[in-house]
Design a protein around this nucleic acid. Sequence first.
DNA 1: GTCTATAGCTAGATAGAC
DNA 2: GTCTATCTAGCTATAGAC
Lengths: 187, 187
Amino acid sequence: MRPQKVLDEEILIGLTKVFRSKGYEGASLQELAEATGLKKASLYHRFPNGKKEMAAAVLVHLGKWVEENVFQVLSDRNHPPKVRLRTGLFGIKTLYNNGKEVCIFRALSMQAGLALFEEQINKGMKQWIDAFNKIGLELGLSPSEAEKNALQTLVEIQGSLIVTKGLDDLDIFENMLKNIENRYLEA
Amino acid sequence: MRPQKVLDEEILIGLTKVFRSKGYEGASLQELAEATGLKKASLYHRFPNGKKEMAAAVLVHLGKWVEENVFQVLSDRNHPPKVRLRTGLFGIKTLYNNGKEVCIFRALSMQAGLALFEEQINKGMKQWIDAFNKIGLELGLSPSEAEKNALQTLVEIQGSLIVTKGLDDLDIFENMLKNIENRYLEA
DNA sequence: GTCTATAGCTAGATAGAC
DNA sequence: GTCTATCTAGCTATAGAC
């Protein structure tokens, strides 16, 4: 076995960067190869099913990151709910690089005909709502309020990312995260 | 002069449909031609600068629709502010076809390197905020509250469109419009 | 496992007849 | 103004040497 020239982790980071900034259709194999430091044919060796598989791998990779740095943090009973909420929101801030980076769901949801992504996106969003629903309950919200707050939180994160980019103003994302935290703590 | 086989309005409707559902990179000249009922070469006769010009025309066309059916409605002094708010929000509901259609800003903001779109998107978002800021003031909000509410409204519209599509649940968009209205009226 | 080279295709865009 | 036919460039993907 010949040693890998580029580690899997580094490849995924490169792929993520390109898909996030260019979207699925906009990301060319050329760019993906350059961003990973591999030649096109080598990328196909790692991902035999081509571009689709690369994008799917990016979704899984980011999903794992969120699982560790957001969902697990929010549900970690070793810490009080308030601390978990704060830490989880910090994970979200990191995920989107303070609002500079786009949500991968958005980047990959624009191309048609790839039902695989739609399902992963649907599942992913449900996980987000579920995670925030639970922390809301632990913070003393009623079931109906917790549910409402969780949906609202997802909407505000997604919406503020769009508006942050459109108006080129990182404060919008930053402030929205603070508002989300305060709404949970005041309740 | 030979008569136009397809009217400008119809062409724009076809182009809009494709760009909105496929995004900029994902929309092929093939599809754009089919959607408009013209052949590719004929499309180039109408839009000599090609795909870029077609997308720009779509932005202008939708911008005019919003100007008429949202901004002018919100600022029409012939009606009381509450009625205007309700009617403007109904225009927004129509614009996005109850949440089934994507925001054109989102559809066109994913491709890189076309500064033209970025500028139009930035300008468009500022207009939205400005319009909601004014109606907020007329409804008796303080300047700082009106500003906050206007930004929040844009975030919630954009975010709810994303989540509505991701979770395939039109109620999310519908309810968010109601929440927006109530927040203004209760203030 | 990585590479060079290239196949096969479709994209965006044009030429020129009518 | 619309069409058929076509160009060229870029795309995704593969073959096969090392």
